[in-house]
């Protein structure tokens, strides 16, 4: 009986961690979606921009958003590997 209860607790604990991971993955996906939208918007703005300095500023922001997406994807993959 005691062992059974222990095993049940362990299972609950493991499930909790999995639940946590699932929620975290969902959050990262949400952020990635937002970043993708942001990157597309910035690209469109950069293409329409005629001022070189302003375009350079926008390109810099695109680079940051892109790197953040890459990092987010890597984090997502790492979480999937843990599953």
């Amino acid at each position: 009986m005691k062992l059974k209860r222990l095993l049940a607790r362990l299972e609950e604990f493991l499930n909790a961690r999995e639940r946590d991971r699932r929620a975290e993955k969902a959050e990262i996906r949400k952020v990635l979606k937002r970043l993708k939208r942001k990157e597309h918007k910035l690209r469109a703005e950069a293409e329409a921009e005629s001022d070189a300095e302003a375009r350079s500023g926008l390109e810099s922001r695109i680079a940051v958003a892109h790197a953040q997406r890459r990092k987010g994807l890597a984090a997502l993959k790492a979480l999937k590997r843990k599953d």
């Binding site: 949400k30 970043l35 680079a63």
Partner: peptide
């Protein structure tokens, strides 16, 4: 969890430096 996701995605200084060099 939202805050943790932000931390996962935000770039650290060395990543930003690489970006600057690139």
């Amino acid at each position: 969890r939202e805050r943790a996701a932000m931390r996962d995605v935000a770039l650290d200084v060395s990543e930003l430096r690489d970006l600057g060099v690139a």
